[in-house]
Design a binder for these strands. Structure first.
Length: 531
RNA sequence: GCGCUCGUAGCUCAGUUGGAUAGAGCAUUGGUUUGCGGUACCAAAGGUCACAGGUUCGACUCCUGUCGGGCGCACCA
């Protein structure tokens, strides 16, 4: 819709035109301050220019009026244009807001270590990434969702040790000393049981079998993670295992050529010349590659799979890591600007007004799965999708548990359910409703129709700017418009019943499509709570 | 100390590539159709957009500085 208008104006004026939605609908559907920007070069006042431009528009299919107000140029879309568009959307509901962008994108997100279940902090990046994925796919991008599994290094050894200690303490009744870094949590108990079943009790006391135990356990933990993500309606196309990458290290090292050098018996990457604070070690003195080495091989592999664009969603605590990975990408001979790293900020928790520190190793984490069980996937997804991801988020644990109207997801769901209810109450059939005309709507109805048809622009904007929260914001305001309209205007029994129901169907389509892009199913009816 | 990032209503957050009177929800207060689900709607109150400069016809938005919060500054992952 906006695209259509902006193309039209570009042709007419021979330049890009800034289009915005006026805050006050009485100003029209779209507006542009173009007169201000060209006032200087034309040496005329903005008022005069906009007057002139406004009168230069003739009768036209798209606009019913073009007005000049205080230097702004305000456009009102014609009934024909709006009603045709709405009718098209209703007969092609699956196509509403779709585009065919086609670009191949690799989207890496979550990538939490397989040493324990996902906690509530992981949920934010997971929801953000998955929402971006759904938006992008709707726009026709060919996106692969990938999870990088850090199944190598000390942390995996530590997982093996942790299971042994847990087992020896709880199952064998030994008194054990827990090191500072030891992992804790309920999941360890189930891993102990699983391990004993598979390997027998001996494995708990045999230090030489720690590695074997760890390798088995990390796969079990991944199973838990995948299941928890599935409960949030999040699914990955591919998993890449860090442990599988090191075989390729020598080749990748050679590929970086001048970018790496030997010093003090170690191998370094000259990342400083690409903007890093200093050069970094990639192979230690004892010959073991560092974690960065794994990431370098991984990114080389990504680029060898040749996508047009790469998006990584990392926790904000990794931001210092961006420049060294980009440096490596450059040394490998690829364009680092194709790699876009988005940071998902920390989620800090408050409990009874006091900061609540989670630590995986202290065992006091708030598990994502517990929250999903308590408030449901829809509410959790909405909460995280509706916050800009680059601000640190702070909330009280109690807020999470509230399942009332303070969570706008119920408000939006109710709007959708309301439409479905009223449609089922009407005596008109769906055919009759679809056959009716959307012309001759009053100002409020016209405004609601326009709002509902705005979804495609919101989707495109939300994805392009990576500002996923624009979609939930839009849905909330569309729901508010619907509720208000419903309150002000009696539908059933009115002369315009079929016409208004058709309008409502457009709103429902917009709500449903928008919700599905948030990974949330639109409800046909709300369950009544008696209390 | 250095780097990144954030600072908008009592709280949680929006604010369209710089544009018209800075907006929602929650919380508070007061209202609402002898009508389609009141899980709704309306209204009041609440702001020096952290502070100070600068650029511009125009700044919450861009630039500089100050203050404050978060994160990072490993041969750990």
């Amino acid at each position: 819709m906006k695209q259509r208008v902006s193309t039209l104006l570009r042709e007419k004026f021979g330049r890009e035109v800034v289009l915005e939605k006026p805050k006050d609908r009485s100003f029209g559907h779209f507006a542009t301050p173009i007169a201000f920007s060209i006032a200087k070069e034309l040496k005329k006042s903005p008022m005069a220019i906009s007057e002139e431009l406004a009168s230069s528009f003739n009768e036209n299919d798209v606009f019913s009026s073009v007005e000049s107000v205080k230097g702004y140029l305000n456009f009102r879309l014609s009934e024909n244009f709006l009603s045709d568009y709405a009718a098209w959307a209703l007969t092609n509901p699956g196509e509403f807001g779709k585009q065919e962008k086609r670009e191949k994108i690799l989207l890496e997100f979550v990538s939490a270590n397989p040493t324990g279940p996902l906690h509530i902090g992981h949920a934010r990046g997971a929801v953000y990434g998955d929402t971006l994925l759904k938006l992008g796919r709707h726009l026709g991008y060919d996106i692969t969702a990938e999870y990088y599994v850090n199944d190598a290094g000390n942390q995996i050894d530590l997982l093996g040790l942790s299971i042994q200690l847990e087992g020896r303490a709880t199952l064998l009744g030994e008194a054990v000393e827990y090191p500072e870094s030891y992992y804790r949590g309920e999941y360890l108990a189930s891993l102990v049981n699983g391990a004993v079943e598979k390997f027998g009790k001996e494995i708990l006391s045999d230090e030489s079998r720690q590695k074997e135990l760890a390798l088995w356990a990390k796969d079990k933990v991944m199973d838990i993670i995948v299941k928890d993500l599935g409960d949030l309606n999040i699914f990955f196309d591919t998993f890449v295992y860090e442990s599988s990458l090191y075989d390729d290290w020598e080749r990748v090292l050679a590929k970086m050529g001048e970018g790496v050098y030997e010093k003090e018996g170690k191998t370094w990457i000259a990342s400083e010349i690409h903007g890093d604070e200093k050069d970094r070690v990639v192979v230690r003195e004892d010959g073991r590659p560092t974690y960065l080495a794994g990431d370098i091989v991984y990114h080389n592999q990504k680029f060898e799979r040749s996508y047009e664009h790469y998006i990584n969603i990392w926790g904000a605590d990794h931001h210092g890591y961006i420049s060294r990975v980009k440096a490596a990408v450059e040394f490998l001979g690829y364009e680092s600007k194709k790699l876009e790293v988005l940071l998902s900020q920390m989620v800090s928790l408050l409990k009874d007004g006091e900061p609540y520190k989670m630590s995986k190793r202290a065992g006091n984490v708030i598990l994502m799965s517990d929250i999903v069980e308590e408030i449901g996937s829809d509410a959790l997804r909405y909460i995280f999708a509706s916050k800009k991801c680059d601000t640190a988020l702070e909330f009280d644990l109690a807020e999470f548990k509230k399942q009332d109207s303070s969570n706008p997801i119920f408000y939006i769901q109710y709007a959708h359910a309301r439409i479905k209810t009223i449609l089922s109450k009407s005596n008109f059939t769906e055919e009759e409703i679809l056959a009716s005309s959307l012309k001759g709507l009053d100002e409020n109805a016209d405004s609601l129709l326009f709002d509902a048809l705005l979804l495609p622009e919101i989707i495109e904007d939300a994805f392009a700017s990576r500002q996923v929260q624009k979609l939930p914001d839009y849905l909330k305001s569309l729901a508010a418009s619907l509720h208000k309209f419903y309150y002000d205007c009696r539908i059933i029994g009115s002369n315009d019943e079929a016409k208004l129901l058709k309008l409502f169907m457009v709103v429902a389509l917009s709500l449903k499509t928008g919700l599905s892009l948030l990974g949330i199913e639109a409800k046909e009816q709300m369950s009544k709570e008696e209390d």
